[in-house]
Design a protein around this nucleic acid. Structure first.
Lengths: 370, 370
DNA sequence: CACCCGCACACAAACGTTTGTGTGATTACG
DNA sequence: CGTAATCACACAAACGTTTGTGTGCGGGTG
């Protein structure tokens, strides 16, 4: 009997199953899917012919069978509801048409969006995409990568790369196809938003609006995104004759709690700055909360610039100036790069351009100039 | 040629590959993974023995081979780095150890968290989980489910069920193992937060704090979550002698923009309510923004209760009262139920209890009673 | 001593594909 | 008209597992 089921899985016994009339049992069991063989014998040809016809592009089909046979194969496959069994195919071809994605945390809006882009592109190209959290923990990410490799994914997209990342070197040594997304590392190819430019835009905007004493609340220093945004921001300030002194830069994290903590740190060191650039919208929201707790108002007392243009930014009590980065495209592009690597190519990284979205959080003077 | 790659992504041609010396090319190619056969001949036994030993629990192994053979198999498998090929296994067993998850949208913090729970549980049980968006669009979700089925997933978790859902009936008729999560529908089993109770808690809290004219901004009516929260809320109000008149209930959506729109709708109909219960934290944040635009302050003029206890809620300028629902557990439980269904069981739905988190957004009178 | 049983394995048959290599029949060509 | 090329297929061998069944051997029993 085929119906052996692992017992350890608290399997509802259903002793009645055997007492039912035969057809009832048959009705309960899922009818097994038609295979190439089913279609082949229905049409009266060999499985190989069916396989070739079904796997060819529409205009290539007649290379493998006569027009009439092609038609018969197509219609019987359709009416039998034939669907290729990916396990058989993958076993034969050693390609799974599956890719894995590692993100720091899927709860993070930015990463979720990037994955949406990856998933869209993957699905359009006949791939399926797995995603899992690494929680930015080296042990966890290594374990997750191992799981993906055990699943025989064709490639991996890493969204949690660090600078000097040993895991990447290991993957490269094992010739595992992979690309990066969101965060850069060394010279491995990947899809990124141009974070330096984003930082630059933020700085220019603040400088142009008369802010002179600006501070930055940034994410952890193992994330290239934070680093590049700071670098670009600093360069932008300097281009306008301003600077970012060390005590005006605090590094906390990417979430709201981190933003609040960042403000506490800044204010503990002296007077409040004119404006704060947070490298993440959520941190920015937390910062606004922190400022309020210290009796400071946005934008009257302190201007705020966030990053990513989360949907929230526009709907906040004080709509927030922020840098919009093309997260969905980062994801789509990353998948494209991975596909190229899988095909044996050596693509180069792609940087997508961010844009500045100006809203009220940096309008202390604009509406009613003092 | 398989190597068709979208040109738009500057894909490096690599004509040089053919000009390299033969060994160099061989060195570039990934060494093929050891199979059962590799291990078997290294040890000097049959593949079947290796398979049985490797697939048995530690204390069951000696049923299949002598202690010495078991040990030899184990160490050679380890030092060869043997990893079972899932395609071969799945082909044979007709089980993929993969499950699919359909969510309305992964960008939504709530759904991302539920998926995290599913993924955790799945991974612990040797399964891998796919997730994709349905965008709450019937055509899209049907297409996604079909893709999952084509991948031969062992079961599906649907987080976007609707009331009277034809897709669910279809799946049930085809005997596809599936469970629901987050949203209920008919009597299909699933894991949910007890949304009625959550609504009740919100109502009780508002009533107990002296609010009498309360309004609700809710999500779309095809989502059971919104409906149950409203139902529970209404019941809670009535238990305290209050009521929810029709014009105090507006249905928009789950995001910040929807919350803003909800406030506009409410205020267009007359005076502002005492308090607003939004069935989602993001909608609540949007509502706060909308209120501010109308010159109303939270909590001085209007109290706000959100839902889900998003991390943001605690760090908002005015920390928000909200209902915490155990999203991660919803995910974990959903996977457990699915596993049971896959094993042939008929589990019953599980409702997890939410808790009220009181913060400043409903403290107009509490700190300084008028 | 004949017998049976359990042990420790081996054998072999699938599962559903893909793809290299036949093979008859028809067509084309010199 | 003979030969070669082409067509329209069929055959068969993998890919790596899992699992039902077979088998020789040693030891215990009657």
């Amino acid at each position: 009997m085929k119906a052996t089921v692992p017992k350890r899985l608290g399997y509802c016994q259903e002793g009645d199953r055997n007492s039912l009339p035969q057809e009832a049992v048959l009705a309960m069991t899922r009818p097994k899917a038609p295979t190439l063989q089913t279609v082949a014998s229905a049409v009266g040809v060999d499985v190989s012919t069916v396989s070739r016809v079904l796997n060819s592009a529409a205009d290539e089909r007649e290379r493998w069978a006569s027009a009439e046979t092609v038609a018969r194969i197509l219609v019987t496959a359709a009416e039998l509801g034939y669907r290729r069994n990916p396990h058989g195919a993958s076993l034969r071809t050693a390609r799974s048409l599956q890719v894995g994605v590692i993100v720091p945390r899927l709860q993070d809006f930015v990463l979720a969006t990037i994955f949406e882009g990856i998933d869209e592109a993957a699905s359009e190209h006949g791939y399926a995409a797995f995603v899992t959290n690494s929680l930015d923990d080296p042990a966890q990410r290594e374990a997750r990568v191992a799981q993906l490799l055990d699943r025989r994914v064709d490639g991996i997209i890493l969204c949690d790369a660090r600078r000097e990342d040993p895991l990447l070197r290991k993957l490269a040594a094992q010739r595992v196809p992979f690309v990066l997304a969101s965060r850069t590392s060394d010279t491995y190819p990947g899809a990124f938003a141009d974070d330096a430019q984003g930082g630059h835009l933020a700085a220019e905007h603040l400088a142009a609006n008369g802010y002179t004493d600006v501070a930055v609340i940034a994410g952890p220093d193992y994330a290239s995104t934070a680093n590049l945004r700071i670098e670009g921001f600093r360069a932008g300030l300097e281009a306008h004759g301003l600077s970012l002194p060390e005590h005006r830069l605090v590094r906390t994290g990417f979430d709201a709690a981190a933003g609040r903590a960042g403000v506490d740190q800044l204010l503990a060191q002296g007077p409040a700055p004119d404006a704060i650039f947070a490298t993440n919208d959520f941190a920015a929201i937390g910062a606004i909360g922190g400022l309020r707790e210290h009796g400071l108002r946005v934008p009257e007392d302190v201007g705020i610039v966030g990053y990513n243009d989360t949907p929230l930014a526009a709907s906040l009590p004080v709509p927030m100036t922020t840098i919009r980065s093309p997260m969905l495209d980062v994801g789509r592009t990353a998948f494209g790069l991975l596909e190229s690597v899988i095909a044996g190519g050596h693509p180069t990284s792609v940087a997508l351009t961010p844009t500045l979205i100006v809203r009220e959080s940096t309008m202390s003077s604009a509406p009613t100039p003092a």
